[in-house]
């Protein structure tokens, strides 16, 4: 069977995430930084709940009230010119 991809932007597999979470007993943030899951083009909009679910499975803890992975602007893909560069 093929590897099961969780984060499609950065091509991070379930295996990568589980191994990293087990090895380092990571927080969601550390897991993101170590694997790059959720750091691709879509900004984690697709895989965020999946990464949370894997962590929940590994740690056995329900998510807390804070959003596990901090949301950073820009929350949509925008061109650099929109963020302050000169428009062509």
């Amino acid at each position: 069977m093929d590897k099961l991809i969780i984060c499609r932007c950065e091509e991070v597999s379930l295996e990568d995430i589980e191994n990293t979470a087990n090895k380092y007993s990571c927080s969601a943030r550390e897991l993101k930084l170590r694997t790059r899951a959720g750091m691709g083009y879509c900004g984690g909009r697709t895989c965020r709940p999946a990464v949370d679910a894997v962590l929940e499975e590994v740690t056995g803890e329900k998510p807390g009230n804070d959003i596990p992975l901090k949301v950073q602007p820009p929350v949509r893909p925008v061109s650099l010119s929109v963020l302050g560069g000169k428009k062509r």
Binding site: D2, T46, C47, P49
Partner: peptide, 8 residues
């Protein structure tokens, strides 16, 4: 919510 299965 995405539901990842092999080949998705």
């Amino acid at each position: 919510t995405a539901v990842p299965i092999p080949g998705w």
